[in-house]
Design a protein around this nucleic acid. Structure first.
Lengths: 335, 335
DNA sequence: CTGAAAGCGCTTACAG
DNA sequence: CTGAAAGCGCTTACAG
């Protein structure tokens, strides 16, 4: 079946292609009868517009790019869903890309989305591709950073107050009477890793504790390094009495290590984590967490991005926004 | 910063745009010196091709569409990741779309991807948009159905043997000595819902049991209806002694209901489910499951799809494939 | 209210 | 090995 074009519609309807285009785009100045003629022809031959041609000419794709770190992390799938839903309400489609925390893949996506001429992007950046991101900024393609950020980029951002979240959780542990509190967290080249570490330090300092280097483990915000770090903590001569784990993936690995060693929560080891995935509440005992308003972050980021796109031509653009949403301490039985 | 085109490169390099195009596309018959001239110019002015223009002319986008049912279901996020990775190896990008089990959204995506001229699609269909899917088939755009399928469509498919999986799990429960086995499963308009129900019936029949209608609950493969169904089962004069829940989302809801009622697993109620999400093993007690080879489904579907795309011009196409991958019974403490 | 023409940025026969 | 020209399927000033 040959694919139909606007030309076929024009021929069927007995009008010019300009007129067809006007009807299809809902222009007001079209004779009602002509309008009907065209719509009938469209129906009859089963015409469907070619977005490639339309976008090439109109310089707008009504498409957003979303690059997340790890689609297997529920934080990002929930955020992705919120972004998609919000974008849909504005009539935008979303190109969801998963960098897998791999800067090379991220670079490929950044290039691919640029070539595909998305109208804007939302990104949870690895931090390694600042140059490519600058290309967007310099080309006037709006970028919103979420969850983590590359500094000095001149983009909007929607973030969590990671330091405060970590601080709240660790302070809670201290108040519960636990000393020797360990931390397992992601690399310090990523803002979330840094800030959660900072919160940990702040909580200790404020309560007069000195951090002990053997209780501080840095990994990759994934299950494997979470598992390994926990094993190391547990094999210390004096293992920590409580541990703060920096995200849900590391926590999964850490829990696995705890099971293997036959350690009991919270009797032997109190356990708290950043993020509140399904299993945190279903776990026995239920786990104390810091919950981020993931959905809200997605909605806000999309609102900001699309408003930038829509107001691109306007003179006095609003200044860059860097919103920080609060996260919530949810105390359960594991601490 | 004005965006650069092939024309700018041509001017910089002092050659024609045809030559630039040849260099960019790696044609062999280009003078090495010319090649260098062009590549230098590309670097110098920071040229990046416009995929819209390229695709419009070349009639190929090297882009795949993936429409899943629910990105919050780990089955689909894992499958999505596998599809993305496989496609990347072939040089294809994936447009990941989440229908949210809503036929209207699915239709929108089906239309959007068609307009964007993807080279092929992979879909876990809701079942409601057969007509739109036929448009793809008739237009010669390859489609691979995964997980569930719309019958009579003339597409390839990669599926799980749902009936066999359900049969294995329910048979296991019977052998353990449980009578009065209930089922909570998704709507019977979707193949996975139907087939898992069939497996349940088969297992009962083979062991001489008669299904009891009050133990059969049909919902929407989501948490809400799983919760509701479980509450109903538990408030029966004679509640079931064991329950088979049809997917991981329904199971989450069902577990919540079980907690609320203070029911113990497996002492009061044995519990088994389709799918093996993270939390199934972390649950206390760990849950007996049927695990699908989700990743393998994604890889296979992508291989099939891309081979179709690549061989589209060839005469004797291979016949349609409908592969069924086996699923595995993993016995844990909940039964 | 409608049509003819130019052009978006490429690729691809066609000549040479 | 290279260039000029046509054309992919649209939208958008420009005339009338």
């Amino acid at each position: 079946m040959k694919v139909k074009t606007i030309k076929d519609v024009a021929k069927q309807a007995g009008v010019s292609i300009s007129t067809v285009s006007r009807v299809l785009n809902g222009y007001k100045n079209v004779n009602p009868e002509t309008h009907e003629l065209v719509m009938d022809a469209v129906k009859r031959i089963g015409y469907s517009p070619n977005a490639l041609a339309r976008s090439l000419r109109s310089q707008s794709t009504r498409t957003l790019g979303l690059i997340v770190n790890n689609i297997l992390n529920p934080i990002y799938s929930i955020m992705g869903q919120a972004i998609e839903d919000t974008a849909r309400n504005y009539g935008y489609q979303v190109f969801l890309c998963n960098s897998g925390a791999n800067p090379e893949y991220e670079l490929q996506y950044l290039e691919g989305l640029y070539e595909k001429k998305v109208d804007g992007i939302i990104i949870a950046p690895t931090g390694q591709n600042k140059e490519k991101l600058e290309l967007y900024v310099n080309s006037g393609i709006p970028v919103v950073q979420v969850d983590r950020y590359v500094a000095g980029l001149g983009t909007d951002a929607v973030l969590t107050d990671n330091a405060e979240g970590a601080y709240k959780l660790v302070s809670h542990m201290i108040k519960r009477g636990y000393d020797n509190i360990g931390i397992i967290v992601g690399v310090q080249t990523v803002t979330t890793g840094m800030e959660r570490m900072t919160g940990y330090f702040n909580a200790l300092a404020e309560h007069g504790f000195h951090p002990k280097s053997e209780y501080i483990k840095v990994g990759h915000f994934d299950e494997g390094t979470g598992y390994k770090a926990m094993l190391e903590l547990l094999s210390l001569p004096v293992p920590p009495r409580a541990v703060f784990v920096g995200n849900n993936l590391m926590a999964k690995g850490a829990i696995k290590a705890i099971y293997e060693k036959g350690i009991r929560i919270p009797e032997d080891l109190a356990f708290g984590m950043y993020d509140d995935p399904d299993w945190a509440e279903m776990h026995n005992p239920p786990i104390t967490v810091i919950r981020q308003p993931t959905k809200e972050i997605g909605v806000k980021a999309t609102d900001i991005l699309i408003n930038r796109i829509l107001n691109q031509s306007k003179e006095n653009q609003e200044g860059l926004k860097s919103e920080t949403v609060p996260s919530e301490l949810i105390i359960r039985k594991s601490t």
